[in-house]
Amino acid sequence: MRLVLVCISILVMVGLGFLFKRLLRPDSFGVYGSYRADAINEALEVPIRHGTNGSCFKCHPFEAKIHKAGLHKTISCEFCHGTYADHVEGDKKTGTLPVKTGDQITTLCLRCHNTEIKARSEEVIKTVAMPDHLRDQQVKLTHTCNQCHHVHAPLKYINRAKQITGLMEKG
């Protein structure tokens, strides 16, 4: 009689165990391993905020032409201008991205082009020391970078000027 009681209680315990497991275990648990497989799909729902340069060029063909021809072609539009998601949603323009002006441009340029940060090899990037560069070029020390350099194609005007003045051969 006692043995039967023990057997029944074990069976009840096992049954309860399975029941609790069934109730508490999340759906899709264990499809790939000891975790919720649905979490992978949830991770995919994070909104994409950065597009590519290609997505910007679609509507800005003028800037695209200059940007692609210049030394800055590897720079992402969105780094300086802001994210695609802040500007476009679906097919509609939803916001205007701020335009950098004056000293903001110089600060932005010097994030990469400052010689004083020694870790920048000549093979990777051309750097300048400010304000020495302004003195060398014999311009006012208050000049911002974009007064001589086109921000999308830094040597666009420089090369053109050299061609006109005959300092550089055409081609």
């Binding site: 991770a43 905020r49 950065h50 992402s76």
Partner: peptide, 23 residues
């Protein structure tokens, strides 16, 4: 960091790779 899993699965590069100017 997820290496931008949501972007990669849609065939896009992670955001940091996308914007890196020097590769």
């Amino acid at each position: 960091c997820t290496w931008c899993y949501h972007r990669v699965r849609k065939g896009l590069l992670p955001a940091c790779v996308e914007v890196c100017p020097t590769g």
